[in-house]
């Protein structure tokens, strides 16, 4: 188990096309913790997730994620250790559920035997041959979770995962997030509002104007 924080940001600034996406974020995230980023549109939630995923470079400040320095570390190495679930869908629409997972497993050189297990865990075993574009929004979100489970990522980055989910879907999500956190993964979820679930006790970090404005638990 890692002793220090899994994520450490100090005065982290990210610029894109001359526009500040993050303007001095200070944040430490403990291993095996559940964290929620809240804030209005444009507050910097997705940009912060993208920085943690190594998808955008750190313009100034300090940052370490999974032990990799964001200033001069290998961001491709970092990307292999995080799992990303975007709210737009994170897979190929013309491939079937199983084909998407096979692609992911082969890319990460993971055994294909794990696919059946994760499909069963997210309740999509009967949909393995269905083309992804034919799935409902909730089923696509479950496929995203299967993709992340298959990856066994240290850091889960979920961008608005609760959008367009019904109560049953939210409960399923909450249950799974509690399980993976208990198993040692660190989860960061972006959401417009704090989580409604009483079962989870996440740390909630409030963002505004590309900065951390406060936090609660």
């Amino acid at each position: 188990m890692r002793s220090g924080p899994l994520v450490h940001l100090a005065d982290a600034v990210v610029f894109a096309n001359g526009f500040p996406l993050l303007s001095g974020v200070d944040l430490d995230l403990a291993p095996a913790s559940l964290n929620v980023l809240t804030g209005a549109n444009g507050a910097g939630k997705t940009s912060l997730l993208r920085l943690l995923a190594g998808l955008v470079p750190l313009t100034s400040g300090e940052g370490t994620v999974c032990g990799i320095d964001l200033r001069n570390g290998d961001r491709r190495q970092l990307r292999r250790r995080v799992g990303w679930l975007g709210h737009e869908g994170s897979f190929y629409a013309d491939l079937s559920v199983e084909e998407n997972l096979r692609f992911c497993a082969r890319a990460l050189q993971r055994p294909l035997t794990g696919i059946g297990e994760v499909l069963e865990r997210v309740g999509l075993e009967s949909r393995s041959g269905t083309t992804t574009k034919q799935l409902s929004a909730g089923q696509r979100r479950r496929l995203g979770l299967a993709w992340l489970l298959l990856r066994r990522a240290e850091l889960w980055l979920l961008d608005e995962p609760y959008a367009s989910l019904d109560d049953q879907g939210r409960e399923f999500f909450d249950r799974l997030l509690a399980e993976v956190t208990a198993a040692g993964a660190t989860v960061v979820v972006s959401a417009h509002d704090p989580l409604r679930s009483g079962a989870l006790r996440p740390r909630t970090v409030h963002l505004a104007g590309g900065r951390v404005q406060g936090e609660s638990r």
């Binding site: 998808l55 990307r79 292999r80 975007g86 709210h87 994170s90 897979f91 190929y92 629409a93 890319a107």
Partner: peptide, 17 residues
């Protein structure tokens, strides 16, 4: 276009191919 969905682009990028 196959890779163009922002979510797909990001999640495939995190495969580190």
């Amino acid at each position: 276009v196959i890779e163009a969905t922002p979510g797909t682009r990001a999640s495939v990028a995190t495969l580190g191919l």
